[in-house]
Amino acid sequence: MRVDFHTHIIPEEIPNFADKFGGGRWPVLEKTCSCGANIMVEGKVFREVTDQVWSPEKRIQDMDAEGVDIQVLSPIPVTFSYWAKADEAEEMSKVQNDFIADTVKQYPERFIGLGTVPLQDVNVSIKEMDRCIHVLGLKGIEIGTNINGKNLDDPEFITFFEMAEKWEVPLFIHPWETLGRERMPRHNFMYTVGMPSETALAAASLINSGIMEKFPRLKVCFAHGGGSFPYILPRLDRGWHVWPDLRLTSKPPSHYAKNFYFDSLNYDPLNIKYLVDRFGYEKIVMGSDYPFLLREIPPGKVVDETIKLTDKQKHSILGQNALDFLNVTIKEEIK
């Protein structure tokens, strides 16, 4: 079984919140043809997309062609809208969460859904997380690596993580609004350099702040193989040892990093082997970033090409680990 943990979706008929609430930062889907559209932000093309990004039928065609049994659907990070008023962002979240839940209900053997919540207001976020999990039947929540420039270790988010652990809600952490983006206008460095660095900062924040020590049963998975985090972990450990006055945890960062999950989207078998050696094969989930340009085609290619993995390890990474992370039990015979 192949489960693509990292895919993105948006409703074809998403409301125009820019018209409804005002402000140019709302993402607006402008159709260019029956099978294509532009995601517009502040009057500019943020991303060109095809019907792959909204059509479950098109997605299933691609899944069948590429050997994927199940996709895990999550919102596109530009729709997080953390900058907006909480009640307006809550409406944006509900539109997407309802759409993802409906898509899963329509094709329950092919899709699993993750929701989104307006983290600029933790109380509203907890309420929507409750609805996502306990009413809509979604299996986790996707959140950004920062909320309006606040790292995930900001004290105001503690209650959110507490409830995610209490309700056993898996969290998928995806980079957005990357650090240093003002220095990355050329070469699309925001995607290739900024996002991996942003992800590392988010992971380090959760560890060094003591959040992962405080909530040891919290399930967290990082996009893009954890970005640069796995490779700077020894440096984080060194900092913990040489600056004891800054310690907020009883053990070095590498101890808590063993609880993290990472998707496999790092393109290189050497990197997959490194993740497996450092964190264990049980903590790696296959993810492609479907349907965007940087995605892996076919999904799981890098895992297939990592020749030092055993058949059992590949089987787990390609599917079972994602199901375990999401607390989902599915029989192998899907098709």
Rank of each mutant, 00 (worst) to 15 (best):
A84R: 04
F80E: 01
I100E: 04
G115N: 01
V78I: 15
D98F: 09
I126K: 00
E128F: 07
T103G: 01
D121C: 01
Y82H: 10
A101E: 07
R110G: 03
D130M: 12
E90D: 14
S125P: 02
K127T: 13
D130C: 11
A84E: 07
R131P: 04
E109M: 11
K127V: 15
N97H: 12
Q120I: 02
I126A: 04
Y82V: 04
V95T: 14
E91A: 11
D130E: 15
F111I: 03
V95F: 10
S81Q: 11
V135T: 13
L119K: 02
R110N: 02
D121P: 06
D98A: 12
D130S: 13
E109W: 07
T79K: 07
P118I: 06
V104L: 09
T116F: 08
D102P: 11
I126E: 02
Y107M: 08
R131A: 08
E109T: 12
P118M: 08
V124A: 14
C132N: 09
A101S: 15
V122T: 01
D87V: 14
I133R: 02
T79I: 14
F111C: 06
T79H: 13
V135L: 12
H134V: 05
D121W: 01
V135H: 11
M92Y: 13
V122P: 00
T103A: 03
V122Q: 03
F99V: 07
K85G: 06
I100Q: 00
E88N: 08
A86G: 10
D102H: 15
M92D: 10
V117M: 03
I126F: 06
V95N: 11
Q106F: 11
Y82C: 06
V124F: 10
R110Q: 01
A86C: 09
A89I: 07
D130R: 11
S125M: 03
V117K: 02
R131I: 04
G115V: 05
V95I: 15
S125W: 05
N97M: 09
D98I: 15
L119P: 01
D130Y: 10
H134W: 07
D102K: 14
G115K: 04
T103V: 10
V124K: 10
R110E: 01
E128M: 05
S81W: 04
P77R: 08
N97D: 08
L119T: 03
E128H: 06
H134M: 10
E90I: 14
T103F: 05
G113F: 00
N97T: 11
A86S: 13
L119R: 00
C132I: 05
I112R: 00
K105D: 13
S81P: 10
D98V: 11
